[in-house]
């Protein structure tokens, strides 16, 4: 059995679903870091200036919504890529 056939068999072992899942995992890294940083900074801002907490909270949710959209698009692409 030549190495070419072995490589082909190995490649067939990787299904579309596995690749899609791996890709979604990669795509979740960025938004994960982003939301962590964003919420951490917001908590710091609220702790330093409790009277501005309401404003900071609204802006924080807005920011989370924008960052989160990237992860969610990855989640949708995961289902599209499974086929």
């Amino acid at each position: 059995m030549s190495t070419l056939v072995l490589a082909q068999q190995a490649a067939e072992g990787i299904t579309n679903t596995g690749l899609a899942a791996l890709t979604y995992g990669l795509g979740a890294i960025g938004p994960g870091i982003g939301i962590g940083y964003l919420v951490g900074q917001s908590v710091q801002a609220m702790a330093r200036q409790p009277e501005a907490a309401g404003m900071v909270r609204t802006t924080m949710f807005l920011g989370i919504a924008f960052v989160e959209a990237l992860a969610l698009i990855g989640f949708v692409v995961f289902f599209l890529g499974q086929g």
Binding site: A65, F66, E68, A69, L72, I73, F75, V76
Partner: peptide
Amino acid sequence: FSLMVRLFANLLA
């Protein structure tokens, strides 16, 4: 597009 995907994907997930 992002409004749509955000609501849809969150609830589906």
